[in-house]
Amino acid sequence: MVPVSYYIILSAILFSLGALGVLIRRNALVVFMSIELMLNAANLAFVAFTRIHETFSGQIFVFFVMAVAAAEVAVGLALVVAIYRSRQSIDIDSMNSLKG
């Protein structure tokens, strides 16, 4: 038997690592992967809470989060391809057109 708080703490660790990835990496693809890592950490917490409350709502929310993540990745990677075409780089520090 595993205490459910272990799962939530693991989820918090994975979420923090994902946030760290968004902060330290400049490659847009790796930033996207870090966002996926954060979504996964949230899903893990959802499923752990499902196990506490004995209802299906958490699992169904995970299902919807997966659908939203798939849509986000499809649009995001299309944006990455479009940005690479116009700038020949996906370094997020080079996307500074709005900087005053």
Binding site: M1, V2, P3, V4, I52
Partner: peptide, 8 residues
Amino acid sequence: IGQNVYVG
């Protein structure tokens, strides 16, 4: 949560 909720 506390640490006393167990799942398996």
